[in-house]
Amino acid sequence: MNIFRLAGDMTHLFSVLVLLLKIHTIKSCAGISLKTQELYAIVFTTRYLDLFTTYISLYNTIMKLIFLGSSISIVWYMRHHKVVRRSYDKDQDTFRHYLLMLPCLLLALLINEKFTFLEVMWAFSLYLEAVAILPQLVLLQRTRNIDNLTGQYVLLLGAYRALYVLNWIYRYFTEENYVHWITWVSGIVQTLLYADFFYYYFQSWKNNVKLQLPA
C-alpha cells in the first residue's frame, strides 16, 4: 500500500461520505444523478464478487463492504425514501445509462485477463466505471446553481481517479510483474473524462458564469 493508493481510497471514501451526509442531514439528493449511482452499485456488485473467493486483507474486505453498502443504500434512498426522493431532478437526469452496459459487457467478453466468470465481471466493472460518471456530468451541466456538497462530491471523485493513476505509476516502477492493462486504460479514460469536465468547470467558475459544456 503506497501513499497514492491510500490517499485515493480515502478521497473515494470521503466522496461517498459527502453524498451520504447530504442525503442524511439535508434530506436532499438535488443535483445527484440516480443513473450514475445505479451504475456505481452495479460496478461494485460485479467487481467485488471475489469477496467470497479471495481474501486479500481486512482493509480490503472492509472497504469493499463499505463501497457496496453505501452505493446500494444511496440508490435506495434516492428511489424510495419518502423525503429524499422528492428532491431528485428526475426530468433533468435523462441519460439512458442502460445503453452503456451492453457495450461494456461485450468489451469485457472480448477483452479480459482470463475468460472466467469472475474475470469477465471484473473487466466489465472497470469498463462500466470508466463511463459511469457521464450521467452525473450531463446533469451537472444542466443544473443551475450547483450546491457545494455536489461540487465537492465530484471534485473528490476526480481526485480519487487522479491519485489512482499516480498509484499505478508508482507500483509499476516499484513492483515486479505489476502490469494491468485493462485497469490502466479504462482508468485513464475515466480520469480524462473528469479532467475534461474540470477544465470547463474551473473556466466557468473563474469567469463566474453558468457552466456550459460544448455540445
Binding site: 493508493r5 486479500i56 480490503n60 469493499k64 463501497f67 482470463k114 472466467t116 489512482y164 498509484n167
Partner: peptide
C-alpha cells in the same frame, strides 16, 4: 498469487 486472477485494488 496466480497472475491475472488476483486484484488487490478497490
Amino acid at each position: 498469487p496466480p497472475e491475472g486472477s488476483f486484484h488487490d485494488e478497490l
